[in-house]
Design a protein around this nucleic acid. Structure first.
Length: 461
RNA sequence: GGCGCCAUAGCCAAGCGGUAAGGCAGAGGUCUGCAAAACCUUCACCCCCGGUUCGAUUCCGGGUGGCGCCUCCA
């Protein structure tokens, strides 16, 4: 299979370090508030990678962190810790906040059929490893101490910027001015912060009480679980310029060699053509989608319709289209289940091969989805096709073996059922004008009737 | 100001040199008393201008337009 490596800027054949195992690290959530659907898109991408690896016979050893400390509100290292701020705003302890949002997050990814990574470590449980990592950097000269923390000495690391293609000068030219005269270089970032006494989350360290910088957790935890050199590191594109550059600097500074073979990044989701972010407050959550009648799998299908390296514009119209399309797909799959028809083996093999080629080409899932539709639309309905579709679902994760969502047949409502009976009688009497007027009457109340071979069905609009 | 991505039908979206997957919407049809639902059929010469090539949506150069990053953010 081929994957796109951000570092080399091209598609490369995946050659794992120690096949069949593939070691992956994915930047996980900071659990200080609800994750939004833009976040979720990135985890769907992560999941598609996992599933494709498995389909190709690889065995993922996958780590995704939970950031429950140390993520400052700003990379200038002056901001408040996000966990602490979330706790203050919600009048709870940071640990309560973290536990609550971690639980919600894990439920969310479960509902999206995102396979849980094998290891999901929390930053607060790896403070020791982080301290050891920072000590290592201090000892070999890549880090220095100031009155408020330990900083990475960015100018000591010649390769800084190799992932993003930004030089330090580039980054500075338009960036905000920051004032911290103790720092050797404005882009030097905090590895460890010394905590004021009143700071809620703090741990003992060789530099007194304090808490870790954001970037160090990924370097420390990936090293602990995956070793000094692992296969794939994933995240959102926004991580490229700062977070992942800093990770590279830390890890290579300590190890003297790269820690990651392939870097993969998921593109952003847009809203109405523009950026989605917490700071713009134009984010939606899965809960909000549910309130509008969209299930997590509707959203997953929506994501599958675009390539992970392209921006995807979220609109409610687009979401509706995905919902309709997905429900029809499920119905189409069911039409093949147990069907007696037979499709030439050549046709089956060809479609199966097309599907595999698509997903193995840097996870071209939208293309693969088109091929799935071609499978469903085969005129001959056959259980062989059904089984092939279910096999494809190992990648898609759409529960294709599930019945389409029934247009909810609302439970008993004697009043409505009486009107429906009246309409049935009118139809029997060939009094279609009356029958239609009853239908219109119910429609005005938001009750939609459907005559089906199985009888009259109704649902609320 | 610097870095980068993208530009395909009403909308979403594949495509990586040989005359354009798929989905939604629309149109026509089958079915239905009529609808609805379902199913079938149908619907594009790919932003503009040059260049390379037998041949370009696909490669190169130049425009124009949109977006993202260089603050936190997936």
């Amino acid at each position: 299979m081929k994957i796109y490596n951000t570092l080399s800027r091209c598609k490369e054949d995946l050659a794992p370090i120690a096949p069949p195992q593939v070691k992956i690290y994915s930047c996980g959530p900071t659990v200080y508030s609800f994750a939004h659907i833009g976040n979720m898109r990135t985890y769907v991408f992560m999941d598609l990678l996992r599933r494709t690896l498995k389909l190709n016979g690889f065995v993922p050893l996958h780590v995704m962190n939970i950031t429950d400390v140390g993520h400052l509100t700003d990379d200038a290292d002056d901001g408040e810790d996000k966990m602490v701020r979330g706790a203050r705003e919600q009048k709870k302890t940071p640990w309560e906040i973290a536990q609550y949002y971690t639980d919600v997050f894990l439920q969310d990814i479960d509902s999206l059929n995102i396979d849980r990574p094998e290891i999901i470590p929390r930053a607060t449980e790896h403070i020791e490893e982080m301290i050891a990592f920072v000590e290592g950097l201090v000892n070999n000269g890549y880090a220095y101490e100031t009155s408020d923390g330990i900083y990475f000495d960015i100018e000591k690391f010649a390769d800084y910027g190799k992932l993003s293609g930004l030089s330090l000068d580039d980054q500075l030219s338009g960036a905000r001015v920051e004032v911290n005269p103790e720092k050797h270089h404005p882009s030097d970032f905090a590895l460890w912060k010394k905590a004021p006494k009143e700071h809620i989350m703090q741990w003992p360290s060789p530099w007194g009480m304090g808490y870790p910088g954001w970037h160090i957790e990924c370097s420390a935890m990936s090293r602990k679980y995956l070793g000094d050199f692992f296969d794939i590191h994933t995240g959102g594109v926004d991580h490229i310029p700062v977070h992942h550059e800093n990770e590279i600097a830390q890890s290579e500074g300590l190890l003297g060699h790269p820690a990651v073979k392939y870097w993969m990044h998921g593109e952003f989701m847009l809203v109405n053509g523009g950026k989605m972010s917490k700071s713009l407050k134009n984010t939606y959550t899965l809960t909000e989608l549910a309130q509008k009648g969209f299930s997590p799998l509707h959203f997953r299908y929506f994501c599958l319709n675009a390539h992970y390296r392209n921006k995807l514009n979220f609109t409610w119209d687009g979401m509706s289209a995905a919902k309709v399309s997905f429900e029809r797909l499920l119905a189409g799959v069911m039409a093949h289940k147990g069907a007696a028809g037979s499709v030439p083996a050549g046709v089956i093999d060809d479609l199966r091969a097309q599907f595999l080629d698509a997903v193995n080409d840097d996870l071209n899932v939208p293309k693969a989805l088109g091929i799935v539709w071609n499978m469903v639309r085969l005129p001959e309905k056959s259980d062989e096709v059904y089984r092939m579709l279910i096999a494809c679902d190992a990648i898609l994760g759409l529960d294709l073996d599930r019945q389409p969502a029934q247009q909810a047949e609302t439970a008993h409502d004697p009043e409505i059922e009486a009107r429906i009976q009246a309409r049935q009688q009118a139809k029997k009497d060939k009094d279609f004008a009356l029958a239609d007027s009853i239908r219109d009457e119910l429609k005005a109340k938001g009750i939609v009737l459907q005559d089906t071979p199985q009888g009259v069905k109704w649902h609320k609009e």
